[in-house]
């Protein structure tokens, strides 16, 4: 596994609000995301995980500190520059899927490619491939309203995957799903993370997701309090044991 981090943040401070209502949501966070790893970002409500996710995804700019994604420094980039960086390097998976209800599965995935200015024929091929990879080859023309939550989240994963991003950021990807679909989505993200050109980070407070993590970062009150890598051999065994157990129950 290459240890050159894909995302690198140093001493990130983020202040939200203004005047008396100003809140310091992040208080000097440093971390990196490595390729081939599924990292979980965990913490209680208001701990700053969503703010950190927004900064990692170049949606928010930090008040202080630096961030590089795939070797590109984000400092001083305009909103359009940040959008360009997202377009090229970041795939998102949202808690509520954020699919376009008026577009079918294929079109939803194609949209992420279209905003990159890719040709129509290429978008169709890549979107079909991504949907096939997440097991939705038979649901290409289905609209979100006619799909289960699990299927919708898999479309969202396909949308993130289709652009072949350097990093996939997932915000509570299992929160709106039942246990079975939650495990299916985490398994998918875990498989995606095995690609050594890509890092995956999932913000979650769902304990069911622990078994899939290569690493767990805990954040509290705007600071990282724990960064636990679980790829020791013992943990690995435990993790696969858990997965096998679940399959037996199913």
């Amino acid at each position: 596994m290459s240890m050159q981090p894909i995302v690198n943040v140093r001493d990130i401070v983020k202040e939200l609000g203004q005047g008396a209502g100003k809140v310091r949501a992040l208080k000097g966070v440093s971390m990196s995301l490595n390729p081939g790893e599924l990292t979980l970002l965990m913490g209680p409500s208001g701990s700053g995980k969503t703010t950190l996710l927004s900064i990692l995804g170049c949606i928010l700019s930090p008040t202080e500190g630096s961030i590089t994604i795939a070797g590109e420094d984000t400092e001083g980039l305009s909103p359009e520059g940040l959008a360009d960086l997202r377009r090229r390097h970041v795939g998102f998976v949202f808690q509520s899927y954020n699919l376009f209800p008026t577009l079918n599965a294929l079109e939803n995935v194609r949209l992420a490619l279209d905003v990159r200015g890719e040709r129509y024929a290429d978008t169709v091929i890549k979107a079909e491939t991504a949907l096939r990879e997440v097991g939705l080859a038979n649901r290409l023309r289905s609209f979100p309203g006619n799909m289960s939550g699990g299927e919708q989240q898999r479309v969202a994963v396909a949308r993130a995957l289709a652009i072949r991003p350097s990093v996939i950021l997932a915000d509570e990807p299992t929160a709106a799903l039942d246990s079975e679909n939650g495990h299916a989505v985490m398994e998918l993200l875990s498989d995606i993370a095995k690609d050594e050109s890509r890092a995956v980070l999932a913000v979650t407070h769902d304990p069911r997701t622990h078994a899939y993590a290569d690493r767990i970062i805990r954040i509290e009150d705007g600071k990282i309090i724990d960064d636990e890598r679980r790829l020791t051999s013992g943990d690995n065994v435990t993790r696969y044991d858990l997965k096998r157990k679940r399959k037996l129950h199913a």
Binding site: E80, A83, R87, F94
Partner: peptide, 16 residues
């Protein structure tokens, strides 16, 4: 609006 925000999050330019 949420769909446009999603588009923006996906990296679309404001021009798009």
């Amino acid at each position: 609006l949420n769909e446009f925000a999603t588009l923006r999050a996906l990296g679309s330019s404001s021009g798009y």
